[in-house]
Design a binder for these strands. Sequence first.
DNA 1: TTGGCTCTAATGGCCTGACCTTTTAACAGA
DNA 2: TCTGTTAAAAGGTCAGGCCATTAGAGCCAA
Lengths: 249, 249
Amino acid sequence: MASESSPPFKQQRPIRGQRAFELICDTIRQRLSDGLLKPGDKLPAERELSRQLHVSRATIREAIRSLEIAGIVYQTKGVKGGAFIREGSPDQIAKTLQDYMSLGSISLEELTEARIFIQDIVVQLAVERATEEQFATLRRIVEKTRAVTSVQERYSCAADFYRTLALSTGNRVLGMFVESVTQILGRFVRTPGYPTLQEELLDSRERFLKLLEQRDAEGAKAEMRTHLNKIHAHVHKFAGSKAGKEDAS
Amino acid sequence: MASESSPPFKQQRPIRGQRAFELICDTIRQRLSDGLLKPGDKLPAERELSRQLHVSRATIREAIRSLEIAGIVYQTKGVKGGAFIREGSPDQIAKTLQDYMSLGSISLEELTEARIFIQDIVVQLAVERATEEQFATLRRIVEKTRAVTSVQERYSCAADFYRTLALSTGNRVLGMFVESVTQILGRFVRTPGYPTLQEELLDSRERFLKLLEQRDAEGAKAEMRTHLNKIHAHVHKFAGSKAGKEDAS
DNA sequence: TTGGCTCTAATGGCCTGACCTTTTAACAGA
DNA sequence: TCTGTTAAAAGGTCAGGCCATTAGAGCCAA
């Protein structure tokens, strides 16, 4: 935010429902896409922006709050605190999908179905593009999985596995989707009463890795599909029983 | 919002950075996922919520603002106005992806690449699941495309086409992704100076529809891929030249 | 020197209370 | 019946204040 001494925001003609805080958001977004603001940069303090833009601090706060919720900035308190531009993260997509599930605009079944198809793509691309080093990382993660005991740790390992796999495609859009689904399904796993399903996991992982290293796309995709179908059936059953209990109570 | 007479929001937790407006958001989200709130429902007025929850109106406003930015509610002014729960829409995903492009967390190339793969899935599912009626709708859209002249109209027809196609898969997650990408690429189309690329569009659509109606998945996928590759090359060239000009100026 | 200690200023979080604009419904008058 | 006026409700904004957190400055004692 360059300091602007000229009157910057004197919208006295709000013909439309344009709100002051939206103009401020748009300005900052514009500076982002123009490259004037980059991740890590710090916005001026609320009181300072209030002076610069000739709006009240409450309005500035609504604007910054909006940017925060949109995942564009984060805020910290204290001196040297403020609003900082952040990197994009899958969290934002995950939150949106989660909200949409709550709203009933998408269903768990649609999410898992989409996941299976997209994971197919991921596997295909991983076979084509993953480096030996990434194979090694995946193998390390599987080894780590062998040692864990708690549900929480196993989920964490699975998340690492899918994340690394998606990373190896070099496509961060796919990566964000995969990570989002992982996070959402993770909420079920963390729900008390979620039954463990460990038995064949490691075997499946081993087979999958082997096929991946052999660059056998079809085989790896089939293995992944089979595994995901099992997992998803498990989650659906759990989610269904939970909903049933809620209805009954 | 049940009225709580006991001290509701006196968070003396220094460890947690939990803010008052976040608690309010969480409460409302909880009611959503519990089914106590549904799309179309109206939240109490700001002043009313302020009284009920024993927080200032400014805090209530920050909470509602957050829900609005998250795409959960929309607000209207005037008597009979207020915050209403809305349906989930792809706009939210589109906005997030757009922001992430501005932040540099994803690139146009990654987005279009992902689109090609996901459109593959969509076509596959459409071949398997689309009804005759949906075929007819698609054909109507193509016919309409024949008549349009402006870039804006043509974009609108293309958006309808992809939306209808995605709809026919019955998977709204895929639908939202497709719609989001359409919206984002639409921003380029609407940029002044975007060169038209009309020639083969209608021919391609015709061929595609024919293959779709014959339930020829591989053929339809190939046709769609070829078309998208052309479109994307076009967009990339335009985006690249625009970026170049910006650097030069 | 070094390890704490307090003090202070900067900053976000929250509050109170007020005024404006927009929107709708109720009402009054032709 | 229609039309214009009015009042109430609701969001949008402003002004100013206090509190809690934080990092640095400066100080003091071991």
